[in-house]
Structure formats: structure tokens, C-alpha cells
Design a protein around this nucleic acid. Structure first.
Lengths: 330, 330
DNA sequence: CTGTTAGCGCGTTCAA
DNA sequence: TTGAACGCGCTAACAG
């Protein structure tokens, strides 16, 4: 309720002096400073940040666009974002878009109307579907893929997928199923690329019946598993494009009487917390989720502050984690 | 970049007319309206929301305080919040507090400095530790417990725990272990109360060795399981105070060679997505997570708008879901 | 129906 | 070192 004006009145100084006492105390005499501080304490003054930000033409907030906040990988990335933002004095606005471009637009609108300074996109860019980057809107993708048409931070999805496949192939598998995300999802595309490259390098013929498309949810993993269970010529291993689907698949396989890893090996992607505690513990690719978020925030901050972005595409290292869903051979 | 003034200049009207054309078009003549719309389109004018909000002394944003965004129950509650907020024209600021009261204060500070209009607290209130409610700050707890000293939305935790226990006791169990949260956590306290009431009602003596305190994480469930596994006189059933710990416990038990549910029954709490896909599928208490969030937002909005809050404590129904981690007896 | 004007709270000139 | 005055973009009160 109390404004800078009231503080000035009580302290017996001008509002400019109060303002200076707050932002540049060294430019104020000791006597004045003390009077101001006393007055501030007396009326319990809190500066009105809305006024300050309005004046500064900065909202000191960013919005993060996430397809589903109740997804463990995404929420971990957001933890990293929140942590970095908080330290930089930025608030983070949550935009749970549920894969709706309309909702994305509504949220991007926040920066167009100056309620927010920039956007961190967690959904990979789908050409022709996703919002195109706007030069007036600072934007960074925190879970990018190859060919993102704006700044991004990511891992080498294709390379990681290929590494997983090489491991599986090294264990003697030649019929390897894939549980993919939606066909047009760039994560699907990049990881699929790694799958194909590994097959080709090993001289294993491609069989399209071994590819099942899900949507990164537990349920779709179960569905995919039942597909594989019904096949005449089953794969001996499955490469799932995320952990949720892998965990769902293990359940689905078990229901069908197929044991993991004895009858079938299975690998995941992301290394969410549950991967370690599934039964069997999941062999997977660990993404540096929090790091992805922190790094993306730094890039966005650079853009917001109008500084030059050195690296418009940052590729962070991943780690391949072998656990129990692939047998301990060799 | 373009302001209302420029639009007025181009349209050849006053800024007041532009303002009215935007907020109350009926109070503007057709001719003027068209001129304004043409000018708006021409310069691609977007109203500056920061200025508008500043003028309205409303930020149209709320902050949600959550101990850990990467917790499936919390993130689902947040989905509900976000959905309701978006519809009401409010933005939601994310405050991942990591159980730190200092961070909570930093975020509450946002409403004291008018960057936010109110707070939705997801962490239950711990007397003497949590922030005390401040009459100047609209605040609602979205995952409340009994005796929350400010507005809250919750389920009957004690009743739900008691219902679980009665089910277990009805199946013939007399030695029932508990995996609790931290001892001072109100969710722990309320659910523990239900545990004790059920024991007492059934005339089963209390054994403190059967109570293990965790922290609602998967890992702590594993640790608790190993405790039970090492006991001379093991319980025949375990009541876990959330699903994560139950799932961790199942893993820990399996490692120790104890089968669920053949050797030991186990129940969870929350009904997160994974509960259905764990092995065995978890018998648990389904909380209406999204509903909790939506309802809490409505209460908060009432407070923010200065209207009378009819129900300062709303208790939503829960559902007891029997799956496979308790055998299908009787 | 329309235009002029004041003022929201703050930071920042510019003089003194 | 200090204070008076201006203006950020907008809405509301008032006068026409």
C-alpha cells in the first residue's frame, strides 16, 4: 500500500533520494540513507515491482512451454530451468500446452504483450506444425533436435540411439523392435535415424513390422508390447524411445508371459527416477535433464539481454546406463 | 513497440477512443471502430499488459509453491491449477521450493511486491516451520491436511488411511507395517492417525517397530523394505503413505526374496500413473489430483477478488482402488 | 459518442 | 549530494 512517496514524506527527503537509497546507496549521504531506512521499516515499505518492471520495460519473467508437466523428464528439465531462473532474478511462468499449438500461441502472446521476456520451448520443433521462430521473441528450445530453426540445447539423439543399438547388436540380437513416439515427433525422427544407422552398419535388414508407434506414455508401451507378443517371429530385443514406454512394455510383456530380460531384452531412454526402480531395472540413456534446462535458460537470458549468442546449438553429453533389462552377457 | 498513442495518431482519433475500442467497443461509433481496427492491424499493435496490469493494480498471475515439481502427484495437481488459471486469464508462476522455507519466502515476496496476486501452497502446513498465513496475502493450500490455519482443499487423509487399514485387517492381517513420510509432515500425521484408529478399532496392539519413516521418495521405499526384510517377525502387509515409496518397497522386497503379494501385501497412496503399471499393479488410494488443483484455484480467485469464501476447507472424495499388490481373497 | 487530462509507482534526467 | 519534473502505457473521470 505504501509507496515510495510516503517513504519520502516520512523520511523528509525527496522520492528521488529514496529511489537512490534503494538502488545506489553509495550515492546517498549516510544521514539521508539512515532516515530512509528508518522510514522504510516504519511503514513496512515494499517497492512495487510491477511499476519498476513497467518502467524498465522488462518483466523479469520467462514462460516455459511444456507438452505435459506431469512427465518426469520434462518436469526435471523444468527444475533446472527454475533453479537457474531464480538465481538470475527471473520468475518462470508455466505453460502446460498439452500439445496444442493454440495454447502455445496463447502463451507466446504473453511475451508479445510484455508480460514475459522470452520463451523456453520443451517440445521439439515440428516443421509446418510448431510455431515458427519470431525474431522479436527470444526463444530457446531446451530439448531440441537436429535442425531446430532457432537456438537450442540438446543431446545427440541419433548418436545415443545408435549407441544403444550397437550395444544390443553386440549382444547378438538381430531382430530388434522399436517402440517409437509419434511418427512426426522430431525426437522420434532423430532416434529412428540412429536405429537405422546401426542396422545398416551391422548389415541387418530392416523390417518395418518391428517398428511400433506410441506416444511416450506408459499405456502406449503396454499396447506396443502386446503387438510384439502377438508376432509370429518376435524380436529378441526392444529399443524403446523413452522410459515410460519401456516400463509399460515390460508390464505388457509380463502379462503375455514373456520374461525380461530372459526372453526379451529392453532398453529405455531418458533415465527418469523410476528407471532404476522398475523390475528389472532399466538399461537406458541418461539425459542430463536439469543441465539441459539450466543451459537453455542461460542461452535465453543472453538473447533477452540482447547479447550475442555464441552457440546457437549446444549439444550436451549423454550417458548409456546398463542395468538389468538387458542381460549381463559376454 | 507501437503504443496506443501511435494507433490513435494513425486512426485520427484520441487515445481514449482507442482504449474504448479495445475494452468497450459498443461505446464507440462504427466509423471510429473501423478506423481504429485498421490502424491496429497496420502497425500490428499489441497492448502492453504490463502497463495495463500496473494501472489495474493486478498482476493476473499467481504463484504455486511446490516442494518438488518432479513429483508426479504434485505435477498432476499443478496441471489442474494451470488449466483453471488459464481459463480465468491468470498466469501461473512456478515456485519449486525444494522444501526450503527461505525459498518459499522469496516467492511469497512476489505477491508482497505485486508481481503476483496470490499463492497456492502444495506443501502441507507444519506449525512452527511453514510460513504463517498473512491476512494481506491471498493463500490457499491445495493439498491440505487437518488444521491448516488458512483456506485449504484436501481429501480426508485420516479416513482414507483408515479405510486402507480396514481392508488389510479384513483380509486377516494383524501385523501391518507402515512406511511413513517424515515424522513432522502433516500428511504423515493425518494418515498415521487413520492407521492408529484402525488398529485400535480392531483391537490390534500397536508395535512401534512396524513404523518406518521415509521421505516420500522411491529410494526411501527401498530402504524401508530392507528394514522389514531384516525383521525377525515380519509384517504380512505394508501400508505405504505414497505410491513412490510403495513401488520402491516392492523392489526392495523382491531383492530380499520376498514376493508381493504372495509373501507380503502392500498398498500405496495417491494413485499416480505408475501405480497401475508397477509389478504387481498397486492397490492404492486415488486422490483427485487435478480436481484438487482446480478447486484450490477457484478458492484463491475468490480471495483475490475480495469475495467471501464460503468454504474455507473443502474436502474432496477419494477412491480406494484395489489392484494386484494385495491378493484377491475372500 | 468523443477528446482532454490526471495519475498509477517508479527511475532518471537536469539543475542546483 | 539532493530535489523537481517528466514520462513509461494505459484507463477512468469529466467535459464537451
Amino acid at each position: 500500500m505504501s509507496s515510495i512517496r510516503e517513504v519520502a514524506r516520512i523520511a523528509g527527503v525527496s522520492i528521488a533520494t529514496v529511489s537512490r537509497a534503494l538502488s545506489t546507496p553509495d550515492k546517498v549521504s549516510k544521514a539521508a540513507l539512515e532516515k530512509v531506512q528508518a522510514a522504510i521499516a516504519k511503514v513496512n515499505y515494499r517497492p512495487n515491482m510491477m511499476a519498476r518492471n513497467f518502467r524498465a520495460v522488462r518483466s523479469y519473467s520467462i514462460v516455459v512451454l511444456v507438452p505435459n508437466i506431469a512427465n518426469l523428464f520434462f518436469s526435471t528439465v523444468i527444475r533446472g530451468i527454475e533453479d537457474a531462473a531464480q538465481q538470475a532474478g527471473y520468475a518462470v511462468l508455466l505453460g502446460d500446452t498439452r500439445d496444442s499449438v493454440k495454447r502455445e500461441k496463447d502463451y507466446v502472446n504473453l511475451v508479445e504483450t510484455r508480460q514475459s521476456d522470452g520463451v523456453l520451448q520443451l517440445r521439439p520443433h515440428i516443421p509446418g506444425v510448431s510455431l515458427e521462430p519470431n525474431p522479436h521473441i527470444p526463444m530457446v528450445n531446451a530439448c531440441g533436435c537436429e535442425n531446430t530453426p532457432y537456438a537450442s540445447v540438446r543431446i545427440d539423439n541419433a548418436g545415443a540411439a545408435q549407441a544403444v543399438m550397437e550395444y544390443l547388436i553386440g549382444q547378438g540380437h538381430t531382430r530388434i523392435g522399436v517402440i517409437a513416439g509419434k511418427a512426426d515427433n522430431p525426437h522420434t525422427i532423430d532416434r529412428y535415424k540412429g536405429y537405422m544407422q546401426a542396422l545398416e552398419a551391422a548389415g541387418i535388414p530392416f523390417d518395418k513390422n518391428l517398428v511400433v508407434y506410441g506416444d511416450f506414455t506408459l499405456r502406449s508401451g503396454v499396447v506396443a508390447a502386446s503387438h510384439f507378443a502377438r508376432m509370429k517371429e518376435r524380436p529378441s530385443a526392444i529399443f524403446s524411445m523413452n522410459d515410460e514406454m519401456a516400463i509399460g512394455a515390460i508390464q505388457g510383456l509380463r502379462t503375455a508371459g514373456i520374461r525380461v530380460p530372459e526372453d526379451m531384452s529392453i532398453t529405455g531412454f531418458d533415465d527418469i527416477e523410476f528407471a532404476r526402480y522398475s523390475d528389472p531395472a532399466l538399461t537406458t540413456v541418461a539425459q542430463p535433464a536439469e543441465e539441459l534446462g539450466k543451459t537453455a535458460f542461460q542461452s535465453l537470458l543472453t538473447l533477452i539481454e540482447g547479447r550475442e549468442l555464441q552457440n546457437s546449438e549446444i549439444v550436451l553429453p549423454y550417458e548409456f546406463v546398463v542395468r538389468k533389462s538387458t542381460p549381463n552377457r559376454r
